[in-house]
Design a protein around this nucleic acid. Structure first.
Length: 488
DNA sequence: AAAAAAC
């Protein structure tokens, strides 16, 4: 299978070849022909498997007939709008558009906040066919009349489930209301909760569901580890790990902007150079922090969830959850910064006893039981719920391991083994050699059969399992979207 | 219940 087999035009094939790609990834193979056909798409694929190109390439081809070398702004209306949840991700998607449009006379730009508006306004006034944007600044330009959206025939929501959650939905709703009803809509993400998926269905017209792996799946090339530790001991455990077992570049996720700054300062005081990225930093600081991390200058980057989604960092070997994310889906996205494009990665989570149920929710979503590791003097107990073997869904490890774990001292407060940097090493190694088992059935825990072609009516009416997010939080969302969708 | 996203 080649990109030419997917029906892409020579100008795009050349650009793909220039970029060094010869074979499409599964999501590209499945999504590109369908997007080219003009259908609406809900696309799900694991992190790091080439989702961006699976929509940028066919979007460019669909717009190619409208390409014009004319300098008249009227000849360059906005025909495709691509929305992303963070500025850095918008910039990354824009770079993909630039890469693949190099042999086509199509104009594109990237619109986001935190930088001067004037340069953006100037470019918009000259006319562009493709706009990649974050919602807030886009609406700002709409108000200033520097952009018109009534010619948009293609809409892409990257990280679609994030774009449709509580924080973003009012902006998205306003943007949708300015678009023509006759359009193609494309929603892409590595995760879709059931509630968000239903909401997404409302804004799509007979969508084709494309899923190359089951929803919410994580890469097999990532090794997950849990370190049970009291919250008060986390920073010292992290320093210990950074000086012993974490021997390469690492992205450390925290839960708040303040915590991000505080941990960064602490690491620096411990002679561990670290940089920080979060939403209260200036855009210049954010851009520089990400750039320094991408080019390898920064070994340790401490981040809020601003860096959780979509960012493509070459060969990142480690992700640390200093604090577990607020939703299980965010775990999938955070750890998806490592183990990309078939590379190996480690996802290390520091889990306090009070995060036990949070951990159980993550394990249920990704259908794995994450092996517990300990470091002498840093253990905490009660992180794994032993009283209920089903709490994490089917055990991801074999019975032998599960049995040893349940009667062993993995999460006991008693010091284990001899004093080493990582006293769990012997067992850790044996666990590392085993491939986690996964459910064979194509019917997932959410009741959706992934082997069947998708019909909107297949969406489970009443999930048999408890929803991952409280239904209370979703009702107002559905209400907000009601009336603006093409079906609603 | 925090973060993100406009000024």
């Amino acid at each position: 299978m080649t990109f030419a087999d997917l029906g892409l035009m020579p100008e795009l094939l050349r650009a793909v070849e220039d970029a060094g790609y010869s074979e499409p990834t599964p999501i590209q193979r499945d999504a590109i022909p369908i997007v080219l056909s003009g259908r609406d798409v809900m696309g799900g694929a694991q992190t790091g498997t080439g989702k961006t190109a699976s929509f940028t390439l066919p979007v460019l081809q669909r717009l190619a007939p409208h390409a014009s070398t004319s300098t008249s702004p009227a000849r360059h209306p906005v025909r495709a709008l691509i929305l992303a949840p963070t500025r850095e991700l918008a910039m990354q998607v824009y770079e993909s558009v630039l890469t693949y449009s190099r042999y086509l006379p199509l104009r594109a730009t990237c619109i986001y906040g935190g930088v001067d508006m004037r340069a953006q306004t100037q470019i918009l006034r000259e006319g562009v066919e493709i706009v990649v944007a974050t919602p807030g600044r886009l609406l700002d330009h709409v108000q200033q009349r520097s952009i018109q959206l009534n010619q948009v025939k293609m809409l892409v929501l990257d990280e679609a489930d994030r774009m449709l959650d509580m924080g973003f939905i009012p902006d998205i709703r306003r943007i949708l209301s300015m678009l023509p009803n006759q359009r193609q809509s494309l929603l892409f993400s590595a995760t879709f909760s059931n509630e968000i998926k239903k909401l997404a269905d409302q804004m799509l017209n007979e969508p084709q569901l494309i899923e190359v792996a089951r929803r919410n799946m994580v890469s097999e090339t990532i090794e997950h580890q849990v370190y049970p530790v009291e919250s008060s001991r986390k920073r010292d455990l992290l320093v210990h790990l950074l000086k012993t077992t974490i021997d390469a570049q690492v992205l450390v996720f925290v839960d708040t902007k303040f915590g991000c700054s505080r941990l960064t300062h602490y690491l620096n005081r411990c002679d561990i150079p670290a940089d920080a990225i979060h939403g209260d930093k200036s855009q210049q600081q954010r851009t520089e922090a990400l750039e320094g991390f991408k080019n390898g200058t920064t070994r340790v980057l401490v981040a809020t969830d601003v860096a959780a989604r979509g960012l493509d960092i070459d060969d990142l070997p480690y992700v640390v959850n200093y604090v577990l994310p607020n939703t299980s889906e965010d775990y999938v996205h955070r750890i998806g910064r490592t183990g990309r494009a078939g590379k190996k990665g480690k996802a290390i989570s520091l889990v306090a006893p009070e995060d036990r149920s949070n951990l159980a929710g993550i394990e249920k979503l990704i259908k794995l039981t994450i092996p517990v590791h300990t470091v002498e003097d840093f253990q905490a107990s009660g992180v794994r719920d032993h009283s209920d073997g089903a709490s994490a869904g089917r055990r991801g490890r074999n019975e032998d391991n599960a049995g040893r774990r349940s009667r062993g001292s993995d999460d006991s407060a008693a010091p284990r083994g001899r004093g080493g940097d990582d006293s769990a090493a012997p067992r850790g190694r044996s666990e590392r050699t085993r491939t986690p088992a996964r459910k064979k059935s194509t019917v997932a825990a959410d009741g959706f059969d992934y082997a069947k072609p998708y019909e909107a009516s297949d969406a489970p009416k009443a999930p048999s399992t408890k929803p991952d997010t409280p239904s209370r939080a979703n009702r107002p969302v559905a209400f907000l979207l009601g009336g603006v969708g093409r079906k609603g």
